[in-house]
Nucleic acid binder design. Structure first.
Lengths: 337, 337
DNA sequence: TTGTACGCGTTATCAT
DNA sequence: ATGATAACGCGTACAA
């Protein structure tokens, strides 16, 4: 059995209260006493029991990080950054891969809240739905602990959002192609999440802004798996075979853009002259093809950093803005003029 | 304040012992009593306090998943699979991104053990060193909880290993190129971990097996970041510029293989006739290039599944083998003859 | 089958 | 500055 605070107090010849004070860095301890106790603690490598500690403090300094799929490149990066910064600040991370189903998400959150986490971080905009009643579970969670949303926006007490301005980024990306003289820009996406909706809106607005109204035939949803690049290529090939004409492709994700590059190569199209391509997320995938892919960097590093800072502030009792918005950057490479 | 077991017991008109029995599925409860208690529990959505529960049970059903960097594609996949299967079996996952430094790893493990996890899963072979004293921390951890190693091997009581036979996979990959008539096979790697060492040994053995002794000039360590593909390409270009001749490249990771493909394309080499390439991990990267990359699938799905099954067995008090070894598969694509 | 009473290892509140 | 002691909320012998 592991040592308890009683054992240490006996060995050090003090009361458990004093040991506790030393442990928690209280000022009210004589230097010599503190030293004496510390010596015993180190000698026996004593660590306070986490459960008992949690009972006393009503916290184990643990944060629940929820994401649909932590093997997704973008989400994985976010989770990594969040965990590292939390750890630096003395918090541990309970990882929850909830999948994309609402029911599963709900159940997972109920469970995790009963484990007494200090806060919940919802990574990715899949957690916010257009249907208000599907967001009810967020409201409920926020009644117990602060809820942090990464890349989604939802107004509710005790919910804090940190996100990238996907609308503006996509507006700018689309506009840049139009300015280069490309009219028929295919928009390819694979999600209906909050941020996906914002991206699409940015594309539409840019097209409309340049009097390109009839975008409906150019907007396509790819429902397959994004790690099956060849299926994406086939999807585009099929569209072309059916007579759709396009000289630009903008995608909601770099993987989709890879499919577009392969489609172009496969059809001996000159890139970017015959086919310009812009991806999203500025992942390492953009460097994997020849030519390399122009993409939007929405700065996950900055977002995660701000999110954690906000969280620490909130946990410390500070008042914090309910929403932080960052701008993305178009990183030009070889698939655009 | 949240409800306690006392509140529930009062409302249900029973003692806390009975509520506890209902909660923990004891048989010794009359059906009608159980129903009565359950009704109250559900009515108030009562959840037992996790800390108090942990104290009683000496467990919160939490597993520590440690990996150097959860944004690495391969590790991210493994973490995801582990978390999902643990969750299905009623365990939560404490994620720890420890980085690649020994000191940091040690400190992280000490911390995490004090949080009373039921077991530690060390993902990736970086955790096992050639230097025995650098593995001391594993022995110590194993004295407290079962330690599961994914893709590494280390013999020690209470340590269980589940891994892929990287030696055999690399032996086979190398042999296949040699059989195709390629003698000068460059070996490019980026790690000195346990599994990296095994891979290299497999390459060497295959070369030696075919009387190709002088491999030293062909073996190269790339110390840069693997998500900077262009640096990898430049690295190979530099080797070629210095007069090194090679018609095959085998890499310890798919990202490195991407660099090789780009090197080939850049120099107008015919792939695979002038330059054959084999990657490792069979990640989505293999499908990102033209031509697509032949790679080794070391079946992370099977490994993680077995690892969890072993873990559950061990936690349940069963006797389990100390090591499980899986075979990899060479997935042939377009970069090999 | 059910209830009582104690133990678990802390933190926190009083005294002193 | 230090010590005694009461919570904290649950599990579980043991008793009934």
């Amino acid at each position: 059995m592991a040592l308890t605070i009683y054992d240490i107090s006996k060995k050090a010849g003090v009361s458990i209260a004093t040991v506790s004070r030393v442990l928690n860095g209280s000022d009210n301890v004589k230097a010599s006493t503190r030293e004496k106790v510390m010596k015993v603690i180190e000698e026996y490598d004593y660590r306070p029991n986490a459960f008992a500690r949690g009972m006393g403090l009503h916290s184990l300094r643990t944060i629940g990080i929820l994401c649909a799929d932590s093997s997704d490149m973008y989400l994985a990066r976010a989770v990594y950054l969040l965990e590292r910064e939390l750890h630096q600040n003395g918090y541990e991370s309970l990882l929850c891969c909830t999948g994309y189903e609402l029911a599963e998400r709900k159940e997972y959150i109920r469970l995790i809240l009963s484990k007494k986490v200090d806060s919940l971080i919802l990574v990715g905009s899949h957690y916010v739905s257009d249907v208000e009643e599907e967001n009810e579970y967020i409201r409920e969670a926020a009644q117990q602990v602060p809820v942090m949303l990464m890349n989604a926006s939802y107004r509710c007490p005790n919910v804090y959002c940190t996100l990238s301005n996907d609308y503006a980024s996509m507006f700018e990306a689309t506009s840049s192609l139009i300015r280069a003289g490309i009219d028929d820009i295919l928009y390819l996406y694979d999600s209906n999440s909050y941020s996906a909706t914002r991206k699409l809106a940015g594309y539409k607005a840019a097209m409309k802004n340049h009097k390109l109204q009839n975008t409906a035939p150019l907007i396509h949803y790819y429902g397959g798996r994004t790690d099956q690049i060849n299926e994406i290529t086939a999807f585009l090939q099929d569209l072309a075979d059916r007579g759709l004409s396009f000289h630009g492709v903008i995608t909601s994700d770099d993987a989709l853009a890879i499919g577009a590059v392969k489609y172009g190569v496969q059809n001996n199209l000159r890139i970017p002259q015959d086919l310009a391509i812009i991806g999203y997320n500025n992942s390492m995938l953009t460097q994997c093809t020849v030519p390399e892919i122009t993409s939007v960097d929405n700065q996950p590093d900055k977002i995660t950093h701000q999110l954690i800072q906000t969280l620490l502030g909130v946990l410390g009792g500070e008042e914090k803005p309910a929403e932080y918005m960052f701008s993305g950057k178009l990183i030009k490479r070889q698939t655009t003029p």
